[in-house]
Amino acid sequence: MSGLLVYVVDDDADVRKGLVSLLESAGYPAQGFASAESFLDAVAESMAALAGCVILDLRMPGLDGLALQRRLVEAGGTIPILFLTGHGELPDALVALRAGAVDFLLKPVDGRLLLRRLDACWQAETARFQARQLQEQVLCVLQRLTGREREILGFALQGIRNWAIAEILGLSLRTIEAHRSRLLLKLDAASVQDWQRRCEQGGLPTARLVELLASLGVAT
Rank of each mutant, 00 (worst) to 15 (best):
L183M: 13
L139Q: 14
L204T: 04
L82T: 01
T175W: 04
L97C: 09
G76K: 07
L68P: 01
A164D: 14
Q193A: 15
S191L: 07
L153F: 12
A13N: 13
L171F: 09
G77Q: 01
L23R: 02
Q143L: 09
L216A: 14
P61I: 07
L183Y: 11
R98C: 08
M47W: 05
A131W: 04
R182M: 08
T78E: 14
G3L: 06
G111E: 13
T78R: 14
D57I: 05
R16P: 05
L204H: 05
D103I: 02
S191V: 09
L66Y: 02
A26W: 03
R182G: 04
Y7C: 05
R148P: 04
C121S: 10
A36E: 00
D103W: 01
V138F: 11
G32H: 01
V6C: 08
A48Q: 10
M60G: 00
W163A: 15
S172C: 12
A44H: 13
A75W: 07
R70M: 12
Y7H: 14
V109F: 06
L97K: 08
P91I: 09
R150I: 06
A219P: 00
A207E: 14
G76H: 06
L204Q: 03
D188N: 13
L40D: 06
R144I: 13
S181L: 13
A42W: 09
A96T: 01
I168Y: 15
C140F: 10
G111I: 10
T175R: 05
V15R: 01
T206V: 15
A34W: 07
I55F: 00
Q135H: 05
R144D: 15
P61D: 10
A30V: 05
G88M: 08
I168P: 09
L213E: 09
E151K: 13
L213V: 07
D188P: 04
E125K: 06
C199R: 02
L209D: 01
L40R: 04
R71F: 08
L185R: 11
G170A: 12
H179N: 06
D119L: 11
R161L: 11
F129A: 15
L22F: 02
R112V: 12
S215D: 14
G62V: 11
D194C: 04
G65D: 02
R117H: 15
V6N: 02
V73T: 12
P29I: 06
P80F: 00
E89N: 08
R16S: 10
G52H: 05
P91H: 06
T78I: 12
L68H: 01
V102S: 05
L145C: 04
A93G: 07
A93Y: 00
S191G: 10
I152M: 07
L118W: 03
L82N: 02
A44E: 15
L157K: 06
I81Y: 03
L106Q: 10
R128S: 13
G170T: 06
L145A: 01
F129C: 13
S2P: 10
A13Y: 13
Q201D: 14
V95K: 04
K17D: 15
L183Q: 05
N162H: 12
G65V: 01
Y28R: 05
D188H: 13
L184V: 07
L139T: 14
L213W: 07
D57W: 06
